[in-house]
Write a protein that binds this DNA or RNA. Structure first.
Lengths: 146, 146
DNA sequence: CACAACTGAATTGTGCGCAATGCTTTTGAG
DNA sequence: CTCAAAAGCATTGCGCACAATTCAGTTGTG
């Protein structure tokens, strides 16, 4: 991924992966102060986004959407639970599965989160078309393993 | 960053930031098995990339290039030191600064790392032009705060 | 039914990332 | 020269990511 003179190991700034790494961290930095007001981290916010789409999903279903495993999700969900945004309960039909449900407080965050979206959109200098292009290229990059 | 129906908080898959978040993690996943053979993590590899460009930089100079602070770099450099890839020593001209130098072993990794680059390039299905486009959009996205 | 194989989640251990704090050294204003 | 402010790095604490392991529960096969 270098595109630099062939004898080098690839200059840092030339690398696509470093650009992605930096951009992803910059995005989280932008989210941080806004999500702090909601008492959320960015990965916690992503989990809520999935639950707002459909409540009551299992841990592994959330993991499929976010590409995260139980090692990441279990403690994250415990913290969301402790903060009163979700509940977790074993399913009676299959006691291996844990269903995650939003609390009233968890539902209530949704409208406040919509403002976060608008704030961030305003901060970006890229055009809508460029953002869509960036999103689609990122998705195809991630999908090509790498 | 939603581009979904306006009443929603933004579907997960519509979000640019989630696409970046996923792509950056996918990139690290692709690097992991290759860098494992070199005894490196991806952030450690980034530090070496910077040092291969110019040896003997200070901690803060490395931080400027990678957008990382001493809280991240200090323990990371300690591990690179313990693995024998670098040395750290206080500068005599300014005892606040710590100069980071490559060891012979650290230099030797450079050619092996070049192969890592080629392996990854082969795995990507995007065209060279698309990769350059993704890199530049990512950089502009990160640069726009967010 | 018995029991091995599998599934889903939690736990453990390591290494970032980052805010906050502490500490040594240097700089600079008076 | 003095001493307060700043710079540079290290440390602490917390929350991801992720590999590896463990464990309870379920499924499938004989």
């Amino acid at each position: 991924m270098s595109f630099a003179h062939p004898e080098s190991a690839g200059r840092l700034e030339d690398q696509v992966c470093f650009a992605l790494y930096s951009a992803a961290r910059a995005a989280q930095q932008a989210y941080r102060p806004l999500l702090d007001d909601l008492g959320l981290t960015y990965p916690q916010y992503l989990v809520l986004l999935v639950l707002w789409e459909q409540d009551g999903q299992t841990v592994s279903a959330l993991g499929d959407r976010l590409h995260l495993d139980s090692g990441t999700l279990s403690p994250l969900l415990r913290r969301l639970d402790e903060h009163g945004f979700i509940t977790r309960e074993r399913q009676s039909t299959d006691a291996r599965r844990v269903a995650v449900h939003l609390t009233a407080e968890g539902h209530a965050l949704r409208s406040r989160a919509a403002e976060v979206q608008r704030c961030l959109l305003d901060a970006v200098t890229l055009s809508t078309e460029e953002l869509l292009n960036l999103r689609d290229l990122s998705r195809r990059f991630a999908g090509s393993d790498v």
